[in-house]
Design a binder for these strands. Sequence first.
DNA 1: ATATAATGATTAAACGATTAAACAAAAATA
DNA 2: TATTTTTGTTTAATCGTTTAATCATTATAT
Lengths: 331, 331
Amino acid sequence: MKKRVSIKDVALHVGVSTALVSYVLNNKKEGRISKEAAAKIRQAAIDLNYVPNQIARSLKSQKTNTIGLIVADIANPFSSQIARIIEDEAQKNGYSVIFGSSDESADKTQNLIFLLLNRQVDGFIVALPENAEKQLNYLAGIDIPFVLFDRYYPEVETNFVAIDNYKAASQAVQHLMANGRKQIGIVTYQTGLHHLSERKRGATDLIQNTSLEVNVRIDHLKEDVDAGIDRLLKLDTPVDALFFTTNLLAISGLKYLNELGVKVPEQIAVVGFDETDAFDLFYSPVTYVKQPMEQLASQSLRLLLDAIDNPGAKQGVVIDTELVVRKSSVS
Amino acid sequence: MKKRVSIKDVALHVGVSTALVSYVLNNKKEGRISKEAAAKIRQAAIDLNYVPNQIARSLKSQKTNTIGLIVADIANPFSSQIARIIEDEAQKNGYSVIFGSSDESADKTQNLIFLLLNRQVDGFIVALPENAEKQLNYLAGIDIPFVLFDRYYPEVETNFVAIDNYKAASQAVQHLMANGRKQIGIVTYQTGLHHLSERKRGATDLIQNTSLEVNVRIDHLKEDVDAGIDRLLKLDTPVDALFFTTNLLAISGLKYLNELGVKVPEQIAVVGFDETDAFDLFYSPVTYVKQPMEQLASQSLRLLLDAIDNPGAKQGVVIDTELVVRKSSVS
DNA sequence: ATATAATGATTAAACGATTAAACAAAAATA
DNA sequence: TATTTTTGTTTAATCGTTTAATCATTATAT
């Protein structure tokens, strides 16, 4: 690879000091630089194909204009949609994004934090996995700006952006009840993650019957969903509705209902969480809780940029969701 | 934010030179450093919470251990799945990934190239949009390692990784023919993108009837798909099968077939491209061309790392796809 | 006892940019 | 004309690391 062109090469080419080149290319010292010199320097920069070295600039300025984004899995549409919006917003503000997937593991999260730290990111947007209090404390301890995204720890004072999971689940169940469903099953993950606990609580506070809960182990997704649905269908009074607290659970559950030949919504009404093409293609388009992705992502970035400029104050944002009602839940 | 701890702080704390600290922490000069000094330095690094500054290191070493990934849209599952695999492989090799979405625009691609270049990435993996010859030449001209991914320009000698699009489409159509379909419609984008042209060519070489083609404008997706399907259904001999050359086209098309109440596969057999949950949830699980994501991504990274180590040689890799046959195409 | 080798550490330059401070030359003011 | 101001530019330090070159010591060989 050819040696990259530095400010020194430009200076040498024109016959001036590197300082002058820097001043010109950064439009500093306006009016104190001769038009001829400025013109020659700009031309030389173009001719030589000069590209400023952000690395050197960062070293000097102690700012990389880079943010670290830690999501559960960038391959998951929820994460990647968020990533896309953050990318755009970041770019508008002169920032780049380095991302990492934690796979819901606290250890991987810690590794990513180290990795991003030694790349000197100016701040983090993090969706923390379960049992990551240590990582949270670490971040808080080194006093670097960060925003908790999607999941947060209400007992710790941090910047965070999240939806009102309790309300979202509550609305979903109320909707099912309003449509005459009496036995509403809830399919969720067996996890201590705050956001999922809230979804569960939002639903069960209305249902008050623990035998209608299915708690799926994350590493036995299909198995536990199928078994759970089997159980709910064989109750003395079988369920007439299912509320799935995540995307993946809903898709897995709907596949199984298809296999069983259960009719939606005639036999079972269904409400899912998050938007996905799959919900549209189902023969009864699926009612779902819609998260305001734009807001979630852009608010996260805004809070982070605020925190970078002003490390003191902590802000929390809770955003409402929308229940998109379609055929799968009304009969 | 607290000042970050540098090697200098560690040196000062122990009472040695920064050089010695560097040697110890990098395990250089093995055996030529006293055990006591080494131990004290390592301890101090831990006590002070020292994190090496990759920016400074990069400046010195002229290597950032960062690669730039330019995809069409990170929010698109194809891109994000690829990104995830590249992320993992990159991390194993000590690299980080900075990504950008081009939105199929050559200008945005150029901007991303500049942005990533001044962040001094060691190389690029790029899915080029249409009419991006200029960007391709630019990359080749500045002599930076890069790998074209998914789309490539056969007339230019570069590193590339792609699937055999012609063969993939050909297999899909042959499969439909083998199942007795006589009038096979093909729904594709109106574009000069090489990979899509190849898919189209693979299909039309077997079909030989231009009235069975639907060329959708990318910015009028739903509109053109719907109109195209309408037309194909009203032909004197209406189509009895549809081959969609992309994921989004297939999903849009299937939604419309649902609206029309057209039965799949009884009336129309369907083959799609790429894997998606939506295909599973359709009442007749959809037959599709499966791209080997793992291979695509990891080969791209391998080629790039090869190119970084050895900028001379150019490699091209073409990978075969697999047709996953399900209910939507067999009657 | 002296020259040589091995050990353990330091010095200083470099990477590419920024920027306060210094400087020379020209222009304005006294 | 002498002095001050303004203008245009350069000098040099700095950011945090790496690393070749160098320098003391101490150990070993002659």
